[in-house]
Amino acid sequence: MTAPHSAPAIGILAVGAYAPAAVVSNAHYAARLDTTDDWITSRTGIRERRHAAPDESSSVLGIRATQNLSERFPGALDGVNLVICATSSPDAMFPSTAALIAGGVNLRGAAAFDVSVACSGFLYALSVGYGMIRAGLARKALIVGSEVMSGAVDQNDRNTAILFGDGAGCVVIGEVPQGYGFQSFVLGADSAGGPHLYLRGAALRLPEGTEMGPHLTQNGREVFKFAVRTLGDSAEQAMRQAGMSTADIDWLVPHQANIRIIEAACERFGLPLERAVTNLERYGNTSAASIPLALAEAESQGRFRDGDQLLLAGFGGGLSWGAAAARWWAGP
């Protein structure tokens, strides 16, 4: 999907983030499981992650991220009449986590719903919010990625426990000056890869050939191969649709799953690793929260300049993928 040139430009107006206070280092797992700090770091790039407190559900994390956004960008929530939460760890099947967040930040009455596309969820939610504003169904949208993945994984399974962390990030999107904002979105999914990464939840029917337990299960080798291929392919497609080349990229903002996947994408695009926004060494894989967490952190550090060309790209359960090209607007 490419943004029409004649229509109002839609982009990111504000960002926010929240991470739980409890820091869980690699040493925690090295003391309990058959692994070491060096093994985890060398294969994933992750050194620590955050775990939510017992009273911190996905809606609570999302509310706190939105409060952070509001503190940093006063007035940003004014006029927001749509809330979308991307999450694989909702508080409940219903009410939606988005509705709980909306109520918690005094956006009662706003349309609110969840999007469940695992680690690709934030990009899917962004595209839906963009489309609804473009169609005149919303004025401004709060898009949240919020996850409590520590409760979704078996903490005694070294293949998954070491990878995932908890956190939330959010953006407000709305009209921006012409020449800024989103230029293209690429979304896709292939259910043939579904058995390689799944979380049972309240499933009534399981994919053929799978034996799902109550926790997230992952075929790491297959997901890695899929991720390296699709992260680059979808990002390249988003660039083409936006009329860009790799030379135009100022910042790659990828899903924070594995440093080797990010390094492969940078190598493919001829981009120095320093131009990729990374924070997985401190947060691990926060699923749908990873891209907005990275966006908010980079913005708070002053890394984005007005007019910078951003390329967002992710992948996840489905197996699914998504990418978006956007020109950063630093505000009036």
Rank of each mutant, 00 (worst) to 15 (best):
N219Y: 09
R139Y: 10
S120Q: 12
L69I: 04
C85F: 00
F224V: 10
A118R: 02
Q309E: 12
A330M: 00
A235F: 02
W328A: 09
A227R: 03
M1Y: 15
R158E: 05
P332Y: 08
L311N: 10
Q155D: 15
P177Q: 11
N156V: 12
Q237S: 14
A22D: 15
L187H: 05
A313H: 06
W251S: 09
F164Q: 09
G307H: 12
N68E: 05
G136Y: 01
A3Q: 14
I262G: 03
Q155V: 11
A65E: 00
L82I: 02
G16W: 00
G109F: 02
S234N: 13
R205A: 15
A298H: 04
F73A: 02
A288I: 01
A289R: 02
A189M: 13
V60H: 08
G62C: 00
I249E: 07
V223N: 12
G75Y: 08
I262V: 04
P254Q: 01
D157L: 12
E297P: 08
W251G: 04
R49E: 12
M1T: 09
R49G: 15
R260C: 07
V223W: 06
L61V: 08
H215Q: 13
G179S: 10
G16A: 06
A289I: 03
A161M: 06
M93W: 08
N26E: 08
A313G: 10
L252V: 10
L163M: 05
N159G: 15
A125F: 06
A3C: 07
C85Q: 00
D250Y: 04
A21P: 01
H28E: 13
E297G: 13
A289Y: 05
L252Q: 04
A326F: 07
A102K: 04
G201P: 04
S290K: 09
T217L: 09
H196Q: 15
S290Y: 05
T97W: 03
F122N: 01
W328S: 04
A294L: 10
R72T: 07
A330E: 09
A203Q: 11
G322N: 01
D114E: 10
W251I: 06
L252W: 08
A111R: 14
A141C: 05
R229K: 09
A202I: 11
A99C: 12
S146A: 13
Y18L: 03
G220C: 02
M212Q: 12
L231K: 09
A52E: 03
R268I: 01
L107G: 10
Q67V: 15
M239T: 13
Q241N: 15
L204C: 07
K225E: 11
T36W: 01
